[in-house]
């Protein structure tokens, strides 16, 4: 009796709700923390990045126009789907980071809880960040936060699941759509997360995930004229400076890299970084 040969998974990109290979046909070897071969991941190209931006732009009117309640429901649904695949994610995190099974399970739990936390923000951030402004005249005057648009996200190299969730959730919960460059070293949990997203009622294109070299892909996104913001959390200082300079071409909102403790209370900063304040005036009269 020979041992059954495992059926391996092909890790592809996640663009517009579909799972294409990189148009470049390239892949790269992903290894465990011990150096064992895990998979050949897709190595996304400039063309893939541009396709992902198009998908994110296309999804923006629907997602930003959805009710806050609906967006909250969908984020909560993602958390439910993630919880249901806890064992699979724990195994991937353990392999990627070389942590114990117990620790990996805790990291998955934190990721699920973070999603639930952000899900609840969808219909509360306007109350916290909006305002009824008492102007000196007969005018109704209201400020509300609105999503910036399409946001590029360079996910942290460490914490391939918890860090990833912690940067994506605050961007999309407010109505932005995004293109994420997953951890180059440990991209597999990101693609498995895409399988969760694909089955969570999340409209295609709201989250697009690229795997490959951040050094290569991030500058294309930073210089892309149809991207409105960029989160450089996972970029090295040199890459972050380069991307921030390129982001100036269309004055993208830039979130600079900062060392983060992913288990700490995230605060509202990652949401507000990609929110605009819109103020509407109307005269009051009979």
């Amino acid at each position: 009796m020979t041992e059954r040969l495992a059926v391996r998974k092909t890790y592809k990109l996640f663009i517009g709700g579909a799972f294409p290979r990189s148009e470049s046909g390239r892949s790269y070897v992903v290894t465990s923390s011990k150096g064992d071969f895990l998979a050949n991941a897709s190595r996304a190209s400039r063309k893939d990045a541009r396709d992902a931006v198009s998908a994110a732009r296309k999804a923006f009117p629907g997602w930003s126009g959805a009710t806050a309640y609906n967006r909250g429901q969908i984020l909560y649904r993602i958390a439910e789907m993630l919880e249901g695949r806890r064992a699979q994610f724990a195994a991937e995190v353990a392999e990627a980071d070389g942590v114990s099974g117990k620790k990996a399970g805790e990291l998955v739990d934190l990721a699920v809880d973070r999603l639930v936390w952000y899900a609840g923000w969808s219909d509360k951030i306007s109350a916290v960040r909006g305002a009824a402004n008492p102007v000196a005249g007969p005018y109704f005057n209201l400020s509300t936060p609105e999503p910036t648009g399409v946001v590029a996200v360079v996910a942290p190299a460490a914490a391939p699941l918890l860090g990833l969730i912690s940067v994506i959730a605050p961007v999309i919960v407010t109505g932005n759509t995004c293109v994420v460059v997953a951890s180059e070293r440990a991209p597999l949990p990101a693609i498995t997360l895409a399988e969760v997203l694909a089955t969570s009622d999340l409209p295609g294109g709201v989250i697009n995930i690229l795997t490959g070299s951040a050094e290569e892909i991030a500058p294309w996104l930073a210089g892309h004229m149809d991207v409105n913001g960029i989160d450089l959390t996972g970029a090295s200082p040199e890459l972050a400076q380069k991307c921030e300079e390129m982001a100036a071409d269309n004055l993208k909102r830039v979130l600079r890299p900062k060392t983060a403790d992913w288990s700490a209370d995230p605060g509202t900063g990652r949401m507000t970084a990609f929110l605009e304040t819109k103020t509407v005036w109307h005269p009051i009269g009979t």
Binding site: N133, N141, L251, V280, W281, H282, P283
Partner: peptide
């Protein structure tokens, strides 16, 4: 757009945030 004036235009007040979307800049 960061400010929408309906049935009025060019009104300003210190209590009312002002600032742009896109290439009109950032911050209020």
């Amino acid at each position: 757009a960061g400010v929408v004036w309906s049935n009025t235009f060019n009104r300003f007040d210190p209590a009312s945030p002002f600032g742009g979307y896109k290439e009109s800049g950032y911050g209020r």
